[in-house]
Simulated scan of single mutants.
Amino acid sequence: MTGGELLSPEEADGIRESIASAVLGSPAGLADSLEHDPEGYLRLVAAARVGAEESSRLLREAIQGARAAGHSWDAVGGVLGVSRQAAQQRFAVKQPRDAAAAESADGPERRVVTPVTAFTEMAALEEAGRAGWHLVDYGPLRLVVEASDQVWEHRRALVGQRRRLTAEGWTRVGPGSFPWHYFKRPRP
């Protein structure tokens, strides 16, 4: 499967236009300044750099999400137009030598729950939360939970819901994995 089969040309063009609009429109007055201010072009370079960094981050997180959903490196490489090995070398998340090394000798007990996918992780977190474990880290096909004396609830939400969930008492866990952010809170 190639990336061209997953998006129509119109959808791909729409994404490109949205990114270009965001780069030109986010810094106030940037587009207008290009008509008369040479400094505007340096601001355009800076804005394009931020856009490229964000696109790169979203790509890495989308690949982690595809892997967590059970897709192979062959499938990911096919969408990217590269070999399985090239995709894996560029985008595989480096794991600590000992995944249980997430547990510190002096801190609370930690466990690695694996394997989980995007389709099974919330059920695993629900079960862990009922037993007093809460999410502290995650990665492709794994969750790291920490023991506590409370019952926890966990939530996975699409990007853009952080403010509302934080106002409701949820705490964000980790940086997110596009398109998802993970949250937890003790149950009352």
Results as ranks from 00 to 15, higher is better:
Q64Y: 12
E11S: 07
A128C: 03
G139Y: 06
Q88T: 08
W180V: 12
S18P: 04
P38W: 08
Q89T: 14
Q89F: 08
A75M: 10
G139M: 01
H36G: 10
E126G: 15
D98K: 09
D37G: 05
A99Q: 14
Q89W: 12
R43W: 11
D32E: 09
F91R: 06
R172F: 09
H36P: 03
R156D: 01
A66H: 07
R110K: 11
R90D: 07
A31Y: 06
T117W: 08
D74M: 12
V136C: 00
D32V: 07
L141M: 12
S18T: 14
W73E: 01
I15T: 08
A87I: 09
E127A: 13
K184W: 01
V144Q: 02
S104G: 13
A68S: 15
I15Y: 14
R155D: 06
A92M: 14
S21K: 13
F91T: 08
S83I: 08
A100F: 15
R130G: 11
P96Q: 07
V136F: 01
F119S: 10
L30T: 10
P96W: 07
R155M: 08
E103A: 12
A62M: 09
L125P: 01
H134N: 02
A47S: 12
H134V: 00
A105R: 15
S104A: 09
A22E: 12
S33P: 06
G160T: 03
R163Y: 05
P140H: 01
S33F: 05
P9L: 04
E5K: 10
E5G: 09
P175N: 12
L30Y: 04
E109V: 14
A87H: 02
E168P: 03
A62P: 08
Q64V: 09
R187D: 04
T114Q: 14
